[in-house]
Design a binder for these strands. Structure first.
Length: 345
DNA sequence: TTTAGACCTGCCCAG
DNA sequence: AGTGACAGGTCTAAC
């Protein structure tokens, strides 16, 4: 079945959003790059994005079997609303960068990462998806996390539709991840010990008797609560420690000033900002570094941190999300790996 | 209250 | 080609 795709324009420059960076720097693990078009699923559609020098083009493919009587203009409006919300577009990134560069040059003589890597912003992702994705992230690398998230939607999500011969599924809700047998299925899919964490966390959301406080409504409501409340709530969940909780606070719950401290950021603090602290990471050092970065970069310190992190990451082409569909006599799917070698699936 | 080990998997990269 | 360390940590069990 061929679907006509109509492209619309949004006047967004790369300096405000760099799709290649933002969608591959370890905030989200679910966007696929198919023939230079970025694709993602919400609960009811595939969203498509394409970046150009002075704008971004977008389109969408609705859930298969949707009633056709919804006006095109409404679907378009819904899609733009999603994009504006998801990319936090009301935040002017360019002006934030200007302040960060000023602050950063106090520590550096050369160019700062903010001059070298424009367009990196924090996304406003769905709290449940962010929670599960970052449970997967513990002691793990971006490539495998992406693969795991892909398995998760393909195995437990709802079918949405097809694009370029690839089937797309929605991110699974807590009910589908709390079903019996999910843990061992996740083990089979290569989740390792995180299989248990995901299943247990989903169970806590399901079991209202035992955990009346743990509901999706409360999780989503954390966007309106203060940081401590959100952080404490998240720590109740299995597989969520301080680092993962902070990632969720920053990337889903509007806590823009929160800097998640991992081994990477710790290195950056010591190496580039002459942070002096103990060699081992403990709760105190964790807090110290967070405050340290917040004092340098201000209320959007978490956003600044993601630029530093990305610049330190080096190679963003982690391979898993780059797909090239070549149409011939038979459709073949080729995946470009990190070294740029194509292998046929 | 604070601090080592164990924990799954896979892929990058020295010996 | 074949091992080993390591990857945006968390949990658990003892000091």
């Amino acid at each position: 079945m061929t679907v006509d795709i109509m492209w619309k324009k949004l006047p967004i420059k790369p300096i405000e959003v760099s799709l290649n960076k933002v969608l591959r720097c370890g905030q989200t693990f679910r966007w696929k790059n198919v023939n230079n078009t970025w694709s993602f699923t919400t609960q009811d559609r595939i969203v498509l994005l394409k970046q150009f020098e002075d704008h971004i083009q977008y389109s969408w493919i609705m859930l298969e079997g949707q009633p056709k009587d919804v006006p095109h203009s409404q679907l378009e409006k819904e899609t733009t609303s999603f994009i504006e919300d998801y990319f936090n577009l009301e935040v002017n990134l360019e002006s934030l960068y200007k302040n960060w560069i000023k602050a950063d040059l106090l520590y550096k003589k050369k160019k700062t990462p903010f001059q070298k890597f424009p367009g990196i912003r924090i996304l406003r992702q769905d709290p449940w998806e962010t929670l599960i994705s970052f449970i997967c992230s513990s002691n793990n690398n971006v490539k495998r996390i992406s693969k795991m998230c892909d398995s998760l939607v393909n195995e437990f999500g709802e079918y949405i539709n097809e694009y370029e011969g690839i089937k797309y599924y929605s991110f699974p809700n807590f009910q589908s991840l709390a079903k019996p047998g999910v843990e061992s299925k996740l083990r089979d899919l290569g989740f390792g010990y995180r299989a248990k964490y995901i299943y247990q966390t989903a169970l806590k959301f399901l079991d209202n008797e035992k955990y009346p406080d743990i509901t999706i409504e409360k999780l989503n409501d954390l966007r309106l609560q203060d940081y401590e409340t959100a952080h404490d709530f998240l720590l109740q969940l299995t597989g969520v420690g301080p680092k993962v909780a902070d990632c969720i606070c920053l990337m889903a719950l509007d806590k823009h000033d929160i800097v998640p401290i991992d081994t990477h950021v710790y290195q950056i603090a010591v190496r580039d900002y002459k942070f002096k602290g103990s060699k081992t990471m403990n709760k105190q050092v964790y807090h110290q570094i967070r405050v340290f970065f917040k004092e340098i970069f201000g209320p959007y310190a978490g956003w600044a941190q993601s630029v530093l992190f990305t610049s330190d990451l080096g190679d963003l082409n982690n391979g898993i999300n780059k797909v090239e569909v070549i149409k011939g006599e038979e459709e073949t799917i080729k995946v470009e790996n990190k070294r740029g070698i194509l292998r046929t699936l």
